[in-house]
Simulated scan of single mutants.
Amino acid sequence: MQKTKYFIAVLTIVAIFLILLFPIYVSAQREEIKIPVLVYHYFYKDKEEAVKCNHSTVTSVENFEIQMDYLYRKNFKTLTMDELYRFLKGEYTPPKNSVVITMDDGYKNNVTLAYPNLKRYGFKACIFVIGKTVIDKSNRPDEFEYLNLEDMVKYSDVFEFGSHTYDMHKIINGKPALLQYSMLDILFDFINGQMVVQSPYFAYPFGGYNEVIIEILKSFNYKLAFTTKKGYVTSNSSPYELPRFTISDKISFQQFVRIVEGKYFEDYSEKKQKNNYKSRPSVGVNVNRRKSIPILRRS
């Protein structure tokens, strides 16, 4: 009889213990992995250069070094595109401190200035290049220098390369060209782009996309596509609508830390997001190309 009472008492204690722990367990189970994808553009050494290029998304080498040093000291892992893709498919669980580093447009200073810092810390990154600038030197404005095919091979130990279209990094009538050109023009651009950059990864110029563009990407076997929306990539994210955080000198170090630590929206969720051009399908409208305005200074 005494043994029975003892057994019942033990079961009661265990039951209470489990009841108390269950909410904590459930909370831990529901905590989803949040991966910040960072996007950089143009790097510079001195302020005069930054002022000269009139670039809204410039980053000094000094600030970049401080940011990379922080990631290294905090044991962050820089995920590759394939690792991010496998995470979204449920085939890979990244470490808690994971981040993805991307760069848009393919400026030469990505390798001359950013590469040494990434190489020092053993980090990986992906550069989304504009196909035409990679092969057509005559198409480059004097104040900018872009990567070429030789660079893409030489620096492949740190960088992988994705597409930023072949020649649709433009604004037309206030909207991204990708939303303005005809279906035939877009298909032709994608074909040319894949001939230059054979990659299944894509970044929308100026964040412009719609459902039609997504279907075109799928038909060309692209696996991931990145927007300019702010947010974290989670297991529930759409592979063709991945958010990113634009990093520039406008972002303080404290803000950078909050972003990579997964705490951005605790402080900045009420800020209005701009340049997120997801529109209704309008592909098929023929546009007079003489009215297009090439802009090579933003995403």
Score class of each variant (00 low, 15 high):
F64E: 00
T133Q: 10
N148S: 11
E215H: 10
Y44V: 05
F256K: 11
N109P: 02
S252M: 11
V100N: 07
S238A: 07
D267T: 15
D189P: 01
N97W: 05
K218F: 09
Q67D: 09
V283H: 12
V37A: 13
T4Q: 06
F188E: 09
Y240C: 10
F161W: 05
G262S: 04
I172K: 12
R86F: 09
D157A: 03
N110W: 03
K291E: 14
N173M: 04
F220G: 02
V287N: 04
K271Q: 14
N117A: 09
K119W: 04
D189S: 01
Y268N: 09
K223E: 13
M168K: 00
F206G: 04
T133P: 03
Y44H: 14
N139S: 15
I135R: 02
T12D: 11
L187K: 00
T12E: 13
A50S: 15
M168G: 02
D189K: 00
G193Q: 00
E32R: 12
I213W: 00
G193L: 00
I191W: 00
F22H: 10
E270W: 14
N210M: 13
L118A: 01
Y85D: 06
L20R: 13
S27E: 15
A225Y: 05
T165N: 01
E48M: 12
R289W: 15
K170D: 13
E145K: 14
Q180W: 03
K170S: 08
G207K: 02
V260T: 09
M81R: 05
S156D: 08
G207S: 07
H164M: 01
V158H: 05
Y277E: 01
L224F: 08
K45P: 03
A177P: 01
I130P: 09
F17L: 13
P116V: 09
G131Y: 00
L217H: 04
G90D: 12
L147E: 04
R120M: 11
G207T: 06
E62A: 13
V51R: 12
K137W: 06
D136I: 02
E143Q: 12
V99I: 06
F7E: 13
I35A: 04
L224C: 06
R140Y: 10
K278F: 14
K3S: 13
V111F: 01
L18F: 15
M103W: 04
I172G: 08
Y146F: 15
N139D: 15
F253K: 08
T102D: 06
N54K: 11
Y277R: 01
V233H: 11
T93S: 12
I130Y: 10
S252V: 09
N192E: 11
I127A: 03
I33G: 03
K154E: 14
K52T: 06
Y40Q: 10
L149M: 13
T112Y: 11
R298F: 14
M103F: 04
E261N: 15
Q194S: 07
K278I: 10
I24V: 15
L179E: 11
R30M: 13
